[in-house]
């Protein structure tokens, strides 16, 4: 079986996903990914006419079934404090996170 997702690609995916994995987990996941790709390859063999467009939602929306856009009227939310209360660290109503390494190289 070909290994489409190499160690290098896998590491990049893990970085994009903001994850870190131990070796066992990485091994299992990379193996499963390659197995799933086997299943996906079935798609490659399908030839599609140019007229076949994408379907983004199964059921098409018509003029009558499409909801209207929202009116621009303020609907104040009373739960702002409850939302804030879910955060792990809050100071002076700000949500606090660790530093982001400096972006300037001078």
């Amino acid at each position: 079986m070909t290994e489409k997702i190499t160690k290098e690609i896998f590491d990049h995916l893990v970085d994009l996903a903001a994850l870190e994995l131990d070796d066992d987990e990485a091994k299992y996941l990379r193996n499963e990914l390659n197995n799933q790709l086997q299943a996906i390859y079935e798609l490659e063999a399908i030839t599609l006419d140019d007229e076949i467009d994408v379907t983004s939602h199964g059921v098409p929306y018509t003029e009558s079934t499409r909801p209207e856009l929202r009116e621009d009227v303020i609907d104040p939310c009373k739960e702002a404090d409850e939302i804030l209360a879910q955060a792990a660290e809050v100071q002076d109503r700000y949500i606090v996170v660790p530093d982001i390494p400096s972006e300037e190289l001078g």
């Binding site: 997702i5 987990e25 996906i40 379907t55």
Partner: peptide
């Protein structure tokens, strides 16, 4: 969850198999 995230990264990243995504949406039409 991690497995789904990683697969999602793979089939939506421009440098890998983004073509699959478009293809899948078109096969969905079939």
């Amino acid at each position: 969850v991690k497995l789904r995230i990683l697969m999602g990264m793979y089939v939506s990243a421009e440098q890998y198999e983004k073509g699959y995504y478009d293809k899948a949406l078109r096969v969905r039409t079939l």
